[in-house]
Design a protein around this nucleic acid. Structure first.
Lengths: 222, 222
DNA sequence: CAGGTTTTCGCCTAACGGTCGAAAACGTGG
DNA sequence: CCACGTTTTCGACCGTTAGGCGAAAACCTG
């Protein structure tokens, strides 16, 4: 029962880690987690574990990642870990304990056990799902400009995306909705940016894919 | 530790189930599986469990599916199950024990516990991955005609796919390779079909997707 | 009001999938 | 041996989508 909680902070994708005070692996950084209770399923359990670190109501998305079960992944008796991916929208800054801070997933400190591999897996899963689902809503604030969304996607994916194309792709899938509002331009001027929101907070796969689609499932656009 | 082993048999996607002899859920059909040993990881374990039912060397693909952990998923003390998806190519007919037979995933008999949900999940995972990976190699024999491949995909996906389109999509991705051989036409005549193979037996994601692709990652075709 | 900045929008192009139909290559029956 | 049916193969066309570019819009400052 482990979770890699990711958030885009200061322009980079970061993961929440806490510093171990005791052996084994003292002073190394590890993912939050804990044991499974008798009357809860794994998702309820990981939410309970995470509650010790953050306000779980701030988690915009939680999903299973994979089971890590190498017998030597931790010293001593074997521990099977069910790893989760958690996401926090970029507009909130959760209050975390003093032993816990955020670290860029592409520049991790010395991590405990196999937690670096789990972080990598979480990052890869997020990057994949950003491309073929509307998971972006879990990284973004309720309202945002296209530029801000572009920054989020770029940070999470690790490469620049075009604002023009991002807007069109999301809009064509019916995921984006203008709120009507705009934001004031910065001190250097520029046209005021329009505000958008994701149409529904619910996780949705964007119509599997163009590939080998069932014959009649076409033109489902609004 | 459970596995839904799927194979296309007689034109439909089927799953390997064994009939429980004892309570609980006697005479209901369940997925093969068993407990995790102390010195093995979950994948080694599921392969060991499956070895009691089939020759594991006939498994062309094994991957983690999800963890099922509802406290009431089985009567008595709670059991956390790590579910796997296994695939067997269509050209082999594994020898299975007398209590074990294949059942179409779309017409399952009375199943034990939550195994029906696990079968559904396995079917969905397979259908998804057929569209954006080369997982087809795990369902197909070493050599095959386009018609045969079309039948496999249609059975696994649950709808007809076009032979022309299937061939072009796979070829454009560099996954398909002609062997040079042909098969004799049937008693009703027809042009002899050319034989193909998948270029590499290794699992490969077909170049994420058109969506939000990194700028320079284009035109990677052979 | 000129010049710089940022966003927005339309246009063009390339690539891909869906579909259709013609052509190829075989068998059978007259 | 030739007409016909059958099955596979291949090319062509079309609509959709993503990538890229640049002009226009809308704001700022000096």
């Amino acid at each position: 029962m482990l979770a890699a909680v990711l958030q885009v902070r200061a322009g980079s994708l970061q993961v929440m880690l806490w510093e171990r005070a005791r052996e084994p692996h003292a002073h190394r950084w590890s993912l939050p987690g804990g044991g499974l209770g008798d009357d809860e399923d794994v998702e309820a359990s990981i939410r309970r574990q995470l509650a010790e670190k953050v306000d779980v109501r701030q988690l915009s998305h939680v999903e299973q990642l994979a089971v890590f079960s190498n017998p030597s992944r931790v010293p001593g008796p074997r521990v099977v870990a069910t790893a989760f991916l958690g996401l926090v929208p970029s507009h909130i800054d959760p209050v975390v304990p003093s032993d816990t801070t955020w670290h860029p997933v592409d520049a991790l400190p010395a991590t405990a056990f196999d937690h670096e591999a789990i972080c990598r897996r979480a990052r890869n899963r997020l990057a994949s799902k950003l491309s073929y689902t509307n998971l972006g809503f879990a990284l973004a604030p309720p309202e945002f400009t296209i530029s801000a969304l572009r920054s989020l996607y770029s940070a999470a994916l690790g490469y620049k995306v075009s604002a023009t194309n991002l807007q069109r792709v999301l809009a064509r899938r019916g995921l984006l909705e203008p709120t009507g509002g705009t934001v004031q331009p910065g001190p250097s001027g520029g046209r005021p940016a329009a505000l958008f929101r994701f149409v529904s907070g619910e996780m949705r796969i964007t119509d599997p894919f163009a590939v080998l689609r069932p014959p009649s499932a076409r033109s489902l656009g609004s």
